[in-house]
């Protein structure tokens, strides 16, 4: 068994009296795809904000590649290889698809306080960006304006940008949100392929996708993890059935 790339211990976050993240502990092993599922309002998005550094945690620790990153900002975590995608598509609409990815390469390739040479002509940046785009099958769209992509393509670009940061670990926040059936199939195939090279934390509503992709699944309910295990273990876990799947069936 490989060692933990990401180790979360007793993580907490409250908004007033509301304990949104209530003592969450889990770890993510190198090269696994670890899915986090849970009903609406379980605190999944808050958790991913805490993991990525967008939100400060009240207590607990987040360790990444053995180092404590709990107090580090989002920028510092990205630089260490912890990249996230956004639940609501967050790309630079006004730039080309290539530039969206090249900007992420630029962030880790030398100083960005260079003022004269046109950045969009830097072959080294563009080559790496193209490689990231190729992995998500967007290379043929490279010179389109990002805002003109279809919704599914924008979701692919989100992932390409995270890849282009040089991430070791991808935090994917509902990559399938709002996608149609075909778009979703493309993205699932893409994540299947990414699993070979990257460690992934996947937050997702689509149960079919989660059970098809995940090595392990953690179930978050009202800010607490009630179970962690293989998809099969989680599927048959009585608490999970009661708290989560039962609710789904009832709804």
């Amino acid at each position: 068994m490989s060692e933990a790339l990401l180790a979360v211990t007793d993580l907490r976050k409250s908004f007033g009296a509301l304990h949104v993240t209530d003592g969450v502990s889990f770890d993510v092993r190198t090269n696994e795809l670890h899915a986090i599922i849970g009903p609406n309002g379980a605190g999944k998005t808050t958790l991913i904000h805490q993991l990525s550094g967008a939100l400060k945690s009240d207590a607990g620790t987040v360790r990444f590649t053995g180092a404590d990153v709990t107090r580090l900002s989002m920028v510092e975590r990205v630089r260490r290889g912890l990249a996230r995608s956004f639940q609501i598509t967050s790309i630079l609409d006004g730039f080309t698809v290539l530039e969206n990815a090249a900007m992420a390469v630029q962030a880790r390739s030398g100083s960005s306080f260079r003022f004269l040479r046109p950045a969009s002509k830097e072959a080294a940046l563009n080559d790496e960006a193209m490689a990231a785009l190729a992995r998500v099958k967007l290379d043929d769209r490279a010179h389109r304006r990002a805002g003109s992509l279809s919704h599914g393509e924008k979701r692919q670009l989100e992932i390409a940008i995270a890849l282009a940061t040089g991430a070791k670990l991808l935090l994917l926040d509902e990559p399938l949100a709002g996608t149609g059936h075909e778009e979703s199939a493309v993205l699932v195939a893409l994540m299947q392929e990414l699993k070979q090279s990257h460690t992934i934390v996947l937050i997702e509503h689509d149960m079919d996708a989660v059970f098809a992709l995940a090595d392990r699944v953690s179930v978050l309910v009202y800010g607490r993890l009630i179970a962690t295990g293989t998809p099969e273990e989680v599927r048959t876990h009585p608490d999970v059935r009661a708290a989560y799947l039962g609710e789904e069936e009832a709804a």
Partner: peptide
């Protein structure tokens, strides 16, 4: 030249979406 340079590109990106720029590692 400046607006097309690395620096200018980050500045323009920040104008459009500062959160995205932080998520890829720019302050």
């Amino acid at each position: 030249a400046l607006t097309l340079s690395r620096f200018g590109r980050v500045l323009r990106g920040t104008k459009e979406n500062p959160v995205r720029m932080q998520a890829i590692g720019f302050r």
